[in-house]
């Protein structure tokens, strides 16, 4: 079945019929098919929240710049943040930050080659999910209580 010869160091294609050379082979589906699992979902969530946290860091620079350029600019920034959409965005940043933080700690533990048994992978994964929600709630509870 296999053509043993190699050309230009390229592995010989398994040629069944000459037709296969004319028409490029299809690639089987991957992301379109593969079942979402805690493993892959948390990985992509870590990535997305990392990007969001980076945008949060841009917000931090904007905040510092506003504070540096005087009270009017700072008030404008503050008014935008305390508005309802501003608060929602801030809540989103908070959750993204905490999820990225918890997932990052999980990665640090993995770097020491601990917690790789499948059961531990799932336990630490759900711990990240719950801890990030809990920490976000806690941060906002303290913040809102401080106002009251």
């Amino acid at each position: 079945m296999a053509d043993e010869s190699t050309r230009n160091g390229q592995p010989a294609a398994v040629s069944i019929a000459p037709v296969t050379r004319i028409r490029p082979r299809p690639l089987s589906p991957n992301i379109q098919l593969y079942r979402p699992q805690l493993t892959s979902v948390l990985s992509i969530a870590n990535r997305i929240t990392g990007v969001i946290s980076s945008l949060g860091a841009v917000g931090l620079v904007a905040w510092l710049a506003a504070a540096a350029s005087g009270e009017p600019a700072w008030s404008g920034f503050r008014n935008a943040v305390v508005s309802l959409p501003g608060q929602l965005v801030l809540a989103g940043f908070t959750y993204a930050f905490f999820l990225h933080l918890c997932a990052g700690i999980r990665h640090l533990v993995w770097d020491t080659v601990h917690g790789f048994e499948l059961r531990m992978i799932y336990i630490s994964g759900w711990a990240v999910v719950f801890a990030s929600v809990l920490l976000t709630a806690l941060a906002w509870a303290i913040g809102l209580l401080a106002i009251a």
């Binding site: 860091a57 931090l60 620079v61 510092l64 710049a65 504070a67 540096a68």
Partner: peptide
């Protein structure tokens, strides 16, 4: 650039 802008703001304050 963003890190520099942030640091400059801090130092300015």
């Amino acid at each position: 650039a963003l890190a520099a802008a942030g640091i400059l703001s801090v130092l300015k304050i």
